[in-house]
Simulated scan of single mutants.
Amino acid sequence: MVRLPLTPEEIERGRRLGALLRRARGERSMLSIALDAGVSPETLRKIESGRVATPAFPTIAAIVDVLGLSLDAVWSEINRPDGEAGLAGSDAAGRLAS
């Protein structure tokens, strides 16, 4: 199967998702979050670094669940228009919790 190149919007959304997950993880180890979510640490590392800009929904759902975040809030945050004030502050994880 041939994969189409990612759009700039998809790349930016992946970058935002990775940054949000890193902030939400805080001091917890990548290994423990990945294992609790049922994904490999390498997969989580790639998502957090933005190398996987469009991860599978079940993967993100599992990670978000382990982090105690709301999928709706995560979706809203990573899709906010540029320049719009979002949850980019250091307490974003607390505001995204379900």
Results as ranks from 00 to 15, higher is better:
Glu27Thr: 09
Ala97Leu: 07
Leu4Val: 11
Gly26Thr: 03
Ala19Tyr: 05
Pro5Lys: 13
Arg80Pro: 02
Arg80Ile: 04
Val74Lys: 04
Leu35Ala: 08
Lys46Ala: 12
Leu44Asn: 00
Leu67Gln: 05
Gly86Ala: 11
Ile78Thr: 04
Glu42Gln: 15
Ala19Pro: 00
Glu77Arg: 04
Glu27Phe: 01
Ala19Asn: 09
Arg45Leu: 02
Pro58Asn: 07
Ser90Asp: 13
Ser29Tyr: 08
Leu20Gln: 06
Arg16Trp: 01
Arg25Phe: 03
Leu20Trp: 04
Ser49Glu: 13
Ala19Glu: 12
Asp65Lys: 14
Glu9Asn: 13
Ile33Phe: 05
Pro41Val: 09
Pro81Ala: 12
Gly68Phe: 00
Ala37Asn: 01
Arg95Asp: 02
Ala62Lys: 07
Met30Thr: 10
Ser29Ala: 09
Glu9Phe: 10
Val64Gln: 06
Ala62Asp: 06
Gly18Cys: 01
Asp65Thr: 12
Ser98Leu: 11
Ala93Trp: 04
Ser40Gly: 14
Ala88Gly: 15
Glu48Arg: 09
Ile63Asn: 03
Gly50Trp: 06
Pro5Gly: 13
Arg25Lys: 05
Leu87Glu: 08
Arg23Ser: 09
Val39Lys: 00
Leu4Met: 13
Ile47Asn: 05
Val64Glu: 01
Glu9Met: 10
Arg16His: 07
Leu67His: 04
Gly83Gln: 08
Glu77Thr: 10
Glu77Cys: 00
Arg45Pro: 03
Ser90Pro: 14
Ser90Ile: 11
Arg23Val: 03
Leu69Ala: 04
Asp72Gln: 11
Leu35His: 14
Asn79Gln: 11
Ala93Asn: 11
Pro58Arg: 09
Glu9Pro: 10
Ile47Gly: 04
Gly18Trp: 01
Val52Phe: 08
Ser98His: 14
Glu42Ala: 15
Asp91Gly: 11
